[in-house]
Design a protein around this nucleic acid. Structure first.
Length: 219
DNA sequence: CCCCAGGGACATT
DNA sequence: AATGTCCATGGG
């Protein structure tokens, strides 16, 4: 028996924070250069692994400044140069290799809409969250993205334990099967987790405390 | 100084 | 199947 249904949670977060419009891309950049904005989403997905988005933005700016924010640029740039450009995003040597593998996978381009989750998961460096993020935000495929914030919020709010696929299935079965709602809900969860349901939560100020199991007990 | 951030691979138990 | 460790920069 949930104190607040998942769909009510979605609407509550939407009322408070408004539309997040994820995934953020520089539309003007891609329009003026003829590059694919989906490339930016795929690149950002790898760069943000275990890393604050602020640091990813620095890396993306470096790529724009010194090269081109596209998968073809990733393919033609050597490892050392690529690693140097993405250094601010951390884990840069591993991420340079992951970017190369993903960029080569999406060659020829425009297969992102047809690719399956299983195929993406075969790429070393692409786990469940990255695969789902690419599918949902770059491929407009109806699949929900679970991340560390989702697991933390749902554990506290509902006492639902992690396990990626179980949580993913639960959410997909609890809200309307709509691409925009999937995109927004995931983004809203992250926004709320960053502002209130942080590593050390600010339960006293949180507007969800009356619905939250953890807040009542200990915070 | 500490902890944490839009994860994932790999080793250990 | 769970848990630990490493990868690494930058901000609070």
């Amino acid at each position: 028996m949930l104190r607040i249904s998942l769909y009510e949670l979605y609407h509550t977060l939407l009322d408070i924070y408004g539309y997040q419009n994820w995934w953020p891309v520089d539309e003007h950049y891609h329009k003026s250069r003829g590059t694919d904005p989906r490339d930016e989403i795929i690149i950002g997905t790898i760069l943000t692994q275990g890393t604050a988005w602020k640091n990813v933005e620095k890396a993306l700016e470096n790529i724009k400044k010194e090269g081109e924010l596209s998968l073809r640029f990733i393919r033609k740039t050597n490892h050392e140069e690529l690693a140097k450009l993405i250094k601010p995003s951390g884990f840069y040597k591993a991420k340079a290799e992951r970017l190369k593998r993903v960029a080569n996978f999406f060659n020829p381009t425009d297969v992102v809409r047809k690719v399956s989750r299983e195929e993406l998961l075969k790429i070393k460096g692409v786990g469940k969250e990255s695969a789902d993020a690419i599918l949902l935000y770059a491929g407009d495929k109806l699949t929900f993205v679970v991340d560390a914030y989702t697991i933390r919020l749902f554990k506290r709010l509902y006492n639902i334990e992690g396990d990626y696929d179980r949580l993913k299935a639960l959410i997909e079965d609890s809200i309307p099967r709509d691409i925009t709602i999937y995109k927004e809900f995931h983004a809203l969860i992250d926004t709320h987790a960053k502002m209130y349901c942080k590593s050390t939560p600010r339960c006293g100020e949180c507007f969800l405390k009356d619905f939250c199991i953890s807040a009542i007990q200990s915070f």
